[in-house]
Structure formats: C-alpha cells, structure tokens
C-alpha cells in the first residue's frame, strides 16, 4: 500500500525525469572534454605510430643502408626492398616500398633499424584517392622525412631516455 503510494507520487511529480535532468544539468556546467576536430586535436605521445618516413642525416645523406632488417622483422610483410651498390660504393636501396594497406603500424621496423632511418611519424591524416597510392615508395617516404624532420627529431629526443 505504501509502496504503491510512493510510486504514484513519484510518477505525478516526474521524479525520474528530474533525476535524469540532474545528470544533464550537472554536465551542463562541468568543463567539457569533447575535442572540436578538425579545429582542435588531441595531444599525441611522442611514441605515436603514424605515417612512415625515411630520414636523412643533417648533411642530406640518406640514413638507410639497405640492411633489410625492417623487411625481415615486419610481421605484415608490407616492406619490399631491393638493394645495390650506389655510385659512391655504399650499400643503398634501389627500391623501398611500404604497402600501407598491409601495414599494421606495429613500429617493429623502427625498432629494428640500426640507423634510425625508417620511422613512424605522428602524422595520422592521410588518404588515398587512387589505386596504387597505398604503396609508399622510397621517394615519397624520403619526402615525408624531409617535411617532418624537425617533428620527428623532437619526438625521438623526447623518448630518448626510455629507449
């Protein structure tokens, strides 16, 4: 009898609604965590694994020595390398392709690299419009490396003490 009365009073007073509105009302005044993408972005760890790049030394010489360790370690088998002797007698790649459709962004290639040539940058905004664009060639990777070198270097520096 009492329970019934309680239920009845609650229902005519919209108690459940008020309870729900209380949560809404509280969040109305709390500080928001929603990010207004693309105007805003979440902060990224220096270890973020995004688009790949091939780095160069400050004097412009490519770092990659075609040791093929990244190709060997890649669990998705997305890296294809052809190597040969370059005109100055050093070991260089003649082809360095990464198939981004196959890549699982595990970062093992970066771990395996003895000269920090292949890196995963923090770039995460890229798309492919045509067939075949998913294959990152050596030229494309070196261009990405050139473009983001400062950022790449900063990220490595930040993470250095943990390596």
């Amino acid at each position: 009898m009492l329970n019934w009365l309680k239920q009845f009073l609650k229902s005519i007073a919209f108690w459940e609604l008020l309870k729900g509105m209380r949560v809404t009302g509280r969040h109305f005044f709390v500080k928001k965590i929603t990010i207004q993408y693309p105007e805003e972005e979440t902060p990224k760890s220096p270890r973020f694994k995004g688009l790949h790049a091939l780095r160069k030394y400050p004097n412009g010489e490519e770092r990659c020595i075609a040791c093929k360790l990244c190709e060997a370690v890649c669990p998705a088998v997305c890296i294809t390398i052809d190597s040969d002797e370059s005109s100055d007698g050093t070991r260089r790649t003649t082809r360095y392709d990464i198939d981004l459709f196959k890549c699982i962004y595990c970062g093992f290639c970066e771990e395996a690299c003895p000269v920090d040539a292949i890196v995963l940058t923090s770039q995460d905004k890229y798309c492919f419009e045509n067939q075949g664009e998913n294959i990152m060639t050596k030229e494309k990777l070196l261009a990405i490396g050139d473009q983001f070198e400062q950022e790449i270097a900063k990220d490595r520096e930040a993470d250095r003490s943990y390596r």
Partner: peptide, 9 residues
C-alpha cells in the same frame, strides 16, 4: 652478389 640481397630472404 655484392649488396644485392640477404641470405634470409
């Protein structure tokens, strides 16, 4: 074969 490939591949 100099610098052409790796034994494992």
């Amino acid at each position: 074969f100099h610098h052409k490939g790796r034994a494992w591949e």
